[in-house]
């Protein structure tokens, strides 16, 4: 994780027809609202199968994790789910400490996500 604060920006791309959010920078109590808005936007647009690419994060705390978990709950209530892309050892450790590694399906890169999602129809 980085030595200096980076403003959060969010890129969106598709994996096997499913929207993927890629937050880039730091997610903490000050920036988590940006991530929440992006996730809510996709859910409100009717997307229930989401991918969250955590590879661009330089910092993530429990507020960010909580928001991602809340978005996953909403996706599942709508009949979908959320897949995480993460190979960052520090974030994987955070997921493990909080038990989120048992809740989420986690893959290490977009190619693996493509294979996992390839057989599923969007939304």
């Amino acid at each position: 994780m980085g030595d200096s604060a980076q403003p959060l920006r969010i890129e969106t791309y598709e994996i096997a027809g499913h929207p993927c959010l890629k937050p880039i920078g730091e997610v903490d109590i000050a920036s988590v609202g940006t991530l929440q808005e992006a996730m809510a936007g996709l859910l409100e647009a009717g997307h229930s199968r989401l991918v969250m690419d955590l590879q661009g994060l330089t910092y993530l705390d429990s507020t960010g994790l909580g928001s991602i978990a809340a978005a996953r709950r909403r996706a599942r209530e709508a009949g979908g789910d959320m897949l995480l892309i993460c190979a960052n050892s520090r974030i994987l450790r955070l997921l493990s400490i909080t038990g989120m590694d048992l809740v989420f399906r986690i893959v290490r890169n977009a190619e693996e996500a493509e294979r996992v999602l390839g057989g599923e129809s969007p939304r």
Partner: peptide, 17 residues
């Protein structure tokens, strides 16, 4: 240090919420 930054952040989160 990176570990301690997380701990400090969580403490701030608790105090702010």
């Amino acid at each position: 240090i990176e570990d301690f930054k997380v701990a400090v952040s969580e403490a701030i989160n608790l105090l702010l919420t």
